[in-house]
Design a protein around this nucleic acid. Structure first.
Lengths: 204, 204
DNA sequence: TAAAATACTTGACCGTTGGTCGAAAATATG
DNA sequence: CATATTTTCGACCAACGGTCAAGTATTTTA
């Protein structure tokens, strides 16, 4: 019966973030939601911001984990196919209304503190994975670039930027056009077969 | 002798932001620096954040204004040349240490609130100008794209992202590689002559 | 097992903050 | 000059993030 307080705090924060704007989440409220004393919070985290960071990082780590899960249950194993899966693990729920997850919920909030941190976390957590996939693609011959690490970082950065509703507060059509441009950019950037990234803007 | 209080507040805020982290700038301090009562601040701005937004917007508007100034003092008037000038007005001081301006100063701060807002403001202020330049280039024949507006927004977004030190906290070499990639991406994205955007990563 | 040490828990408390407000001062209007 | 309107102000407030001494549970020691 180890009641991991740290996990309790995580869960309380995550729950709250999906319910109310970050600015309305006080440490007292987190403690209340977690069912522990306020002082305990500061036994496990050195600041309120640290809780936020940890939650966001965990969120992207889960997306990466989900991607690795899908790998096992699939025959297609080309680098490009894997990249597609990785992207989908991160973004797929952002465009379907029914299965909201943490990432989309976070994006919806208007608090700026969140958005910058999310981009940084995304780059930190996801770009290393993508970097390896790019290298795989290079070995396979399906991808050509001399700078996989930097390319990966750029790609993740841009992708995350795109998913941020608050940066481009526009209609879906503009978003679709941009995703199409992005697909083209990725193709030329990585010198892949035409259509390799069409899944970004094509339904399913 | 109209002592425009609003301007006083602007200047105080701008000065303070170049001196201390945003989180250390209280409304009392702004009032003190501006030499007015705290209550007066809330007569002209409805919140502290609104001051921040206004200052950042003014900052990018100045960059755009500076660009328009350089237009008059030049013979070269091709769309690509103008785009180069626009970019340089926004970023040039970010890489030279001596002539620090507001933009670089802001980027240096570690406060997240700033960074997201700066990206939004950059897109809002600069991408319309770039959109027109892309259209010019299309008419000239030097640029080819069906979606100038969206392309412009993407370009500004990515560029701003790159200039943000806190997102890619790496060495200058990685930054240089990324700017090189970006230049290539812009070329293929806009179908311009090779080397059109080399100024992004080449010294002067 | 008792005692000592360590790890964990707590909520009252603190300093600071963004923002409010009624009143005073300045300015405009007639 | 009197009245109305705009501007200025700082004492004040509620709420916040964070601290802390004092307690309780758990583990270690002998």
């Amino acid at each position: 019966m180890k009641s991991d307080k740290k996990e309790l705090i995580f869960d309380a924060m995550e729950k709250l973030m999906s319910e109310v704007p970050y600015k309305d989440i006080s440490v007292d409220v987190i403690a209340k939601k977690a069912g522990i004393g306020k002082g305990s919070i500061y036994y496990y985290f050195k600041s309120k911001d640290e809780i936020l960071y940890s939650v966001i990082e965990r969120c992207y780590r889960r997306a990466v984990h989900e991607y690795f899960e899908t790998l096992h249950t699939s025959s297609e194993n080309s680098a490009l196919a894997k990249i597609k899966k990785l992207f989908q693990s991160v973004i797929k729920r952002d465009f379907s209304g029914n299965e909201k997850n943490m990432l989309i919920t976070l994006h919806l909030h208007d608090d700026m503190t969140l958005h910058h941190k999310m981009k940084c976390a995304a780059i930190q957590e996801i770009s290393p994975v993508l970097t390896e996939l790019l290298k795989e693609g290079i070995n396979e011959g399906s991808i050509k670039t001399d700078t996989p690490k930097e390319s990966a970082e750029i790609i993740v950065a841009v992708l995350t930027f795109f998913l941020d509703d608050t940066v481009f507060p526009e209609d879906n059509n503009s978003m679709l056009i941009k995703l199409k441009i992005l697909a083209g950019v990725l193709e030329t950037c990585l010198k892949t077969e035409p259509g390799s990234f069409d899944f970004l803007y094509k339904a399913n």
